[in-house]
């Protein structure tokens, strides 16, 4: 009985993680966007510090 439960959890866990990977892959930022994020952070800092 415990074996069934364990195997069940294994598959549930693995499939949730796999599904999450695919969902997140769609929302992965492009390198260009990340670069822009960085520039934005630094620009805001400049405004705050003055």
């Amino acid at each position: 009985m415990v074996t069934y439960v364990c195997i069940g959890i294994v598959f549930l866990f693995a499939s949730i993680r796999i599904a999450l990977y695919y969902v997140r892959a769609k929302r992965t930022p492009e390198p260009r966007e990340l670069e822009q994020t960085l520039y934005t952070i630094l620009k805001q800092a400049r405004r705050d510090s003055r």
Binding site: I7, F13, A14, P29, E30
Partner: peptide, 29 residues
Amino acid sequence: GGILALVLLWRVQLRMLPQQTLRRLGQML
């Protein structure tokens, strides 16, 4: 069952490593 789940997960992870790296990078920024 255990081996199948592990192999499936591992394969997906390998394929998703570049995207995951970018995602982490975004989080860190």
